[in-house]
Design a protein around this nucleic acid. Structure first.
Lengths: 200, 200
DNA sequence: TATGTAATTTAACAAGTATCTAATTAGAAG
DNA sequence: CTTCTAATTAGATACTTGTTAAATTACATA
């Protein structure tokens, strides 16, 4: 990762109003007006901050009629946070540690898939631990076609044979940025947005 | 952690010159003049940036005659990086995850101490993996007295019965901020500086 | 005591930023 | 076409910040 990308990430988080926006968005998507009211600032100020957060890839947005809803980009928040550490120590420590980390993740991945899925591919239960939940979601989502647009009904039909609570899983797909929804149409997010979660 | 502490941490990293300073310091301690020359700025500028980095607890310093050497505060760099993530998601996920993480760490701690030390308390070898190495170092350092000043000789005599390569271990104590050295006198850093590495 | 070196402080300036008000655009719905 | 709502843009203001040159402090040593 480049220096100025890291700088702009930290600039984006170097303001209390913007951090408060992110905290509110962690509860769920919100539109500009609501944010403005909650934070006691004008909508213009929200637009200003949203621009900075968007430039740092910390939020995405979704338009519904003439309201724009902002939502967290979980992936970048997690990844950029540790990117600074990697940048500073890149030339110092030994590479083995990173390799070992990836190795560990692969093993975890295997064991999670073995333990949470039946031989027939049914999901026994949704893991409570975030890391494991993400492995399960990634496993499911990787069975969808990249670039294809799905209706909500199609998504439900895809999840149903795997787990009865399709609504929860469909919501998790969106929350964790595996999928993107626009006007009731679902589409896979680019792989780079959700692959490499092992750095979490 | 408070909001403004997080903000000042990110402000500290929201400048390319300061990040470059940290990258240079990752190679080892440097004084102001050297940093100024390497970065093509005046010593006054270095003083300015050093103040900000110090306020965010990202660096420490050590005086030798009238030269001040800056050194990284590894602990804070690692910890603050992920603090923002915790702050944002604090009220969302379930607390169990954090508890589970601490549980996992305690188990790892036990197994590392059992595997790397003999029954007599000798260190078989220095772990290559950072996380494990830190557990070993913490285990050793916790046997020293808080507040007491040690000569280098005393430190060596303390380490010798545990592991023959006392020089390496002594250096690691400093590198990872377990101890602080001033004019050949060693002293334990405050516990909060090196406890809770499990969030790494 | 005088001299030299490293760091800090001060004052100044240019650039950047957070916020607001007021004007404008984009879209929806009567 | 008109009206309403949500968001953005433009312009203004006050505050903050990165940098420098010059003066000052702190310490060491000859």
């Amino acid at each position: 990762m480049q220096l100025d990308k890291i700088v702009s990430y930290h600039k984006a988080l170097a303001d209390p109003t913007r951090i408060k926006i992110l905290i509110i968005l962690a509860e769920g998507e919100r539109n500009g007006q609501v944010l403005a009211e909650k934070l006691h600032v004008t909508p213009a100020t929200i637009t200003h901050h949203a621009t900075k957060l968007r430039e740092a890839s910390l939020i995405n947005e979704r338009r519904d009629k003439n309201t724009i809803y902002f939502l967290l980009n979980d992936y970048f928040i997690h990844n950029n946070a540790t990117a600074i550490v990697e940048l500073i120590y890149r030339n110092v420590g030994n590479k083995k540690e990173v390799d070992a980390m990836e190795e560990t993740h692969k093993k975890l991945q295997e064991s999670v898939i073995n333990n949470f899925f039946t031989a027939e591919g049914k999901l026994k239960q949704i893991p409570a631990q975030l890391k494991k939940k993400l492995i399960v979601l990634e496993h499911l989502v990787s069975q969808l076609e990249e670039g294809r647009k799905y209706t909500e009904k199609e998504i439900n039909h895809f999840i149903k044979p795997v787990h009865e609570d399709f609504a929860t899983i469909r919501r998790e797909f969106i929350m964790h940025q595996f999928m993107y929804r626009e006007n009731e149409i679902y589409e896979l997010n680019p792989r780079e947005l959700w692959a490499r979660w092992e750095t979490l």
